[in-house]
Protein backbone atom coordinates (compact mmCIF):
# COMPACT_ATOMS: atom_id res chain seq x y z
CA UNK A 1 0.00 0.00 0.00
CA UNK A 2 1.33 3.45 -0.91
CA UNK A 3 0.74 6.12 1.63
CA UNK A 4 -0.61 9.53 0.75
CA UNK A 5 1.86 12.34 1.24
CA UNK A 6 2.26 14.72 4.12
CA UNK A 7 2.51 18.35 2.95
CA UNK A 8 4.99 20.24 5.10
CA UNK A 9 4.66 23.99 4.58
CA UNK A 10 7.85 25.44 6.07
CA UNK A 11 10.18 28.21 4.90
CA UNK A 12 12.97 27.70 7.44
CA UNK A 13 15.45 25.10 6.11
CA UNK A 14 16.57 24.23 9.66
CA UNK A 15 13.02 23.56 10.78
CA UNK A 16 12.44 21.63 7.57
CA UNK A 17 15.44 19.41 8.21
CA UNK A 18 14.52 18.91 11.85
CA UNK A 19 10.91 18.12 11.04
CA UNK A 20 11.94 15.62 8.39
CA UNK A 21 14.36 14.06 10.86
CA UNK A 22 11.68 13.91 13.52
CA UNK A 23 9.22 12.30 11.11
CA UNK A 24 11.80 9.73 10.11
CA UNK A 25 12.64 8.95 13.73
CA UNK A 26 8.94 8.57 14.47
CA UNK A 27 8.79 5.87 11.78
CA UNK A 28 6.27 7.77 9.72
CA UNK A 29 6.16 5.95 6.39
CA UNK A 30 4.33 8.58 4.36
CA UNK A 31 6.30 10.54 1.78
CA UNK A 32 6.79 14.18 2.71
CA UNK A 33 6.31 17.01 0.21
CA UNK A 34 7.79 20.36 1.27
CA UNK A 35 6.36 23.68 0.14
CA UNK A 36 8.60 26.63 1.06
CA UNK A 37 6.03 29.38 0.87
CA UNK A 38 2.27 29.83 0.95
CA UNK A 39 1.90 30.20 -2.80
CA UNK A 40 3.72 26.96 -3.48
CA UNK A 41 1.58 25.21 -0.88
CA UNK A 42 -1.62 26.35 -2.61
CA UNK A 43 -0.23 25.33 -6.03
CA UNK A 44 0.38 21.87 -4.67
CA UNK A 45 -2.99 21.59 -2.93
CA UNK A 46 -4.89 22.78 -5.98
CA UNK A 47 -2.60 20.87 -8.41
CA UNK A 48 -1.61 23.86 -10.47
CA UNK A 49 1.54 25.57 -11.77
CA UNK A 50 4.66 23.51 -10.99
CA UNK A 51 2.45 20.96 -9.19
CA UNK A 52 -0.14 20.51 -11.99
CA UNK A 53 0.86 16.86 -12.21
CA UNK A 54 0.16 16.14 -8.52
CA UNK A 55 -2.06 13.07 -8.33
CA UNK A 56 -3.51 12.65 -4.85
CA UNK A 57 -4.26 15.16 -2.13
CA UNK A 58 -1.94 14.90 0.87
CA UNK A 59 -3.28 13.04 3.89
CA UNK A 60 -2.15 15.79 6.29
CA UNK A 61 -0.92 19.37 6.04
CA UNK A 62 1.65 20.60 8.58
CA UNK A 63 1.35 24.35 8.23
CA UNK A 64 3.70 27.03 9.57
CA UNK A 65 2.09 30.44 10.06
CA UNK A 66 4.80 32.89 9.15
CA UNK A 67 5.48 32.25 5.50
CA UNK A 68 6.77 34.20 2.50
CA UNK A 69 4.33 35.34 -0.21
CA UNK A 70 1.13 33.99 1.30
CA UNK A 71 0.79 33.78 5.05
CA UNK A 72 -0.11 30.47 6.71
CA UNK A 73 -3.52 31.70 7.86
CA UNK A 74 -4.34 32.83 4.30
CA UNK A 75 -3.33 29.40 2.98
CA UNK A 76 -5.71 27.89 5.52
CA UNK A 77 -8.51 30.26 4.53
CA UNK A 78 -8.02 29.45 0.84
CA UNK A 79 -8.05 25.70 1.27
CA UNK A 80 -11.07 25.76 3.57
CA UNK A 81 -12.88 27.84 0.95
CA UNK A 82 -12.32 25.25 -1.75
CA UNK A 83 -14.63 22.27 -2.03
CA UNK A 84 -11.74 19.85 -2.75
CA UNK A 85 -9.69 20.72 0.31
CA UNK A 86 -12.47 21.82 2.64
CA UNK A 87 -12.15 18.74 4.86
CA UNK A 88 -8.38 18.19 4.63
CA UNK A 89 -6.75 17.76 8.07
CA UNK A 90 -4.52 20.76 8.77
CA UNK A 91 -2.21 20.97 11.78
CA UNK A 92 -0.68 24.35 12.48
CA UNK A 93 2.92 23.76 13.51
CA UNK A 94 4.46 27.01 14.56
CA UNK A 95 6.68 28.90 17.03
CA UNK A 96 3.93 31.30 17.99
CA UNK A 97 1.81 30.92 21.06
CA UNK A 98 0.13 34.28 20.56
CA UNK A 99 -3.50 34.13 21.58
CA UNK A 100 -4.52 35.87 18.36
CA UNK A 101 -2.83 33.20 16.24
CA UNK A 102 -4.48 30.41 18.21
CA UNK A 103 -7.92 31.94 17.92
CA UNK A 104 -7.59 32.80 14.26
CA UNK A 105 -6.03 29.41 13.47
CA UNK A 106 -8.96 27.56 14.95
CA UNK A 107 -11.60 29.92 13.62
CA UNK A 108 -10.27 29.51 10.08
CA UNK A 109 -10.67 25.76 10.49
CA UNK A 110 -7.36 24.31 11.69
CA UNK A 111 -7.77 20.82 13.11
CA UNK A 112 -4.91 21.17 15.59
CA UNK A 113 -2.45 23.75 16.79
CA UNK A 114 0.95 22.56 17.95
CA UNK A 115 3.80 24.72 19.12
CA UNK A 116 7.26 23.61 18.04
CA UNK A 117 9.28 22.98 21.23
CA UNK A 118 12.91 24.10 21.29
CA UNK A 119 14.02 20.88 22.96
CA UNK A 120 14.54 18.50 20.07
CA UNK A 121 13.60 15.46 22.14
CA UNK A 122 10.25 17.07 22.87
CA UNK A 123 9.90 18.02 19.24
CA UNK A 124 10.41 14.43 18.13
CA UNK A 125 7.83 13.33 20.66
CA UNK A 126 5.33 15.90 19.37
CA UNK A 127 5.83 14.83 15.78
CA UNK A 128 5.54 11.15 16.77
CA UNK A 129 2.22 11.78 18.49
CA UNK A 130 0.96 13.87 15.57
CA UNK A 131 1.82 11.13 13.12
CA UNK A 132 0.23 8.49 15.31
CA UNK A 133 -2.94 10.46 15.67
CA UNK A 134 -3.50 11.98 12.24
CA UNK A 135 -2.03 9.23 10.07
CA UNK A 136 -3.04 6.14 12.03
CA UNK A 137 -5.83 6.70 14.54
CA UNK A 138 -7.84 9.38 12.85
CA UNK A 139 -10.50 8.30 10.32
CA UNK A 140 -10.75 10.63 7.35
CA UNK A 141 -14.04 11.49 5.59
CA UNK A 142 -14.78 9.40 2.47
CA UNK A 143 -14.31 12.32 0.12
CA UNK A 144 -10.59 12.33 0.92
CA UNK A 145 -9.95 8.61 0.48
Amino acid sequence: MTHSAILLVEDNPNDEALTLRALKRSNVANPVVVARDGAEALDYLFARGAHAARERLPQLVLLDLKLPKIDGLDVLKALRADERTRLLPVVILTSSLEEQDLIRGYSFGANSYVRKPVDFAEFVESVRQLGMYWLVLNEIPPALR
Partner: peptide, 21 residues
Protein backbone atom coordinates in the same frame (compact mmCIF):
# COMPACT_ATOMS: atom_id res chain seq x y z
CA UNK B 1 6.93 40.43 20.72
CA UNK B 2 5.35 38.40 17.96
CA UNK B 3 8.60 38.40 16.05
CA UNK B 4 10.52 37.69 19.24
CA UNK B 5 8.39 34.64 19.84
CA UNK B 6 8.61 33.42 16.31
CA UNK B 7 12.00 34.43 15.04
CA UNK B 8 14.16 34.06 18.13
CA UNK B 9 12.93 30.59 18.90
CA UNK B 10 13.61 29.21 15.43
CA UNK B 11 17.43 29.45 15.65
CA UNK B 12 17.32 27.98 19.15
CA UNK B 13 15.41 25.05 17.83
CA UNK B 14 18.07 24.58 15.16
CA UNK B 15 20.90 24.77 17.73
CA UNK B 16 19.23 22.25 19.98
CA UNK B 17 18.03 20.00 17.19
CA UNK B 18 21.32 19.78 15.33
CA UNK B 19 23.29 19.32 18.55
CA UNK B 20 21.05 16.38 19.28
CA UNK B 21 21.45 15.14 15.70
Amino acid sequence: SYSVAHDLRAPLRAIDGFSQA
